[in-house]
Amino acid sequence: MVQMFKSLKTNLFIQMIVNALKIHKTFIGLVIVVILILSSFLSTPISGYHPDSHGDIVNERYLAPSGAHPFGTDKFGRDLLSRVLYGGRISLMIAVSVVTISMIIGVLYGSLSGYFGGRIDRVMMRILDFLLAFPLIFLIITLIALFKMTHWYLIPLLAFTSWMETARLIRAEILSLKEREYIMAVQGLGYSHLRIIFVHVIPNCLSVVLVTIPLKIAEVILLESALSFLGIGVQPPTASWGNIINDGREVLTSAWWISTIPGIFITFTVLSFHLISDGIRKSLSVQS
C-alpha cells in the first residue's frame, strides 16, 4: 500500500518535470542555466586562462575584446572571459546555498505557524511583520557593520534575510491544506504533530516551493551582485559578476567591456530562472 503511494508520487513528479519541459520557454531557460553551470566549472579550459592569473601589466592591461581574449582584459591584465565564467560559479553557488537554507527555514517556519494556528500563529506572524519592516539593504549593511563581517558571512546573512516571503507563502498554503479530510483523518489516527507536518503536510505544498525556488535564486543572484557591486559582497580578488562590474566602473568609457559583459550574464541568468519558474507553474496547473 505504502509502496503504491510512493510510486504514484514519484510518477506524478516525473510527469510534472516532463510537462514543464514540454513548454518551450522552460526548456530554453533550463538549457541556458545548464550551459552556464557547465561553463562556470570549465572556466579555465574554455578561456585558456586562470581567473586570477595576472597578465603582463604593461602590455595586457585593458585589452579590448579580441581573438585571444574574447571578452578583453581588466586592469591587471586578467582574462575577462575566464573571470566572468568563474564569477558565475561563485554567484550561482552562493545563490543555490542561500536558497537552500532560506527554503528550509521558510518552509519550517511557515508550516509550524500555519499548522498550529491560533496564538502561536499570531505571534509568529507578528515576528515576521517585524522582520519585514527592515528595508533589506539597510538591514544587511547594519549587520555587516555591527558584526564587522569578513568574507564567510555572505551566505548565512542572505539566507537569514530572505526566508520571510517563503514562510508567508507556505503558511497560506498550509492554512488551506489543514482543512482537508486527509489531515483530519491522520489527526484522528492519533499521529504526532511532527509526523503529520513532515509526512503529510509539507510534501503536499512542495509544488509552491518548486515554483518559488527558481524565482528566489534569481532574486538572490540580483541581491548578491548588488552587494558585490557596492563592495560589501564577494570580495576581490575572488571574481563575482557584481564586483567585476564595480571594477569596470572607473574605466567605463575607456574599457566598456569590463562592466557591460557580466551584466549581460546576470540578465540572462535571471531571465532563465524566471522562465523555468513560469514553466513549472504552468505544468502544475496543467496537472491539476
Partner: peptide, 17 residues
C-alpha cells in the same frame, strides 16, 4: 520582464555610458 531581469546598477552604468 527583460528590463526587470537586469540589475539596476548595471542599467544605470549602461545608461551613463
Amino acid at each position: 520582464l527583460f528590463l526587470y531581469a537586469m540589475p539596476g546598477f548595471w542599467i544605470a552604468l549602461i545608461a551613463i555610458l
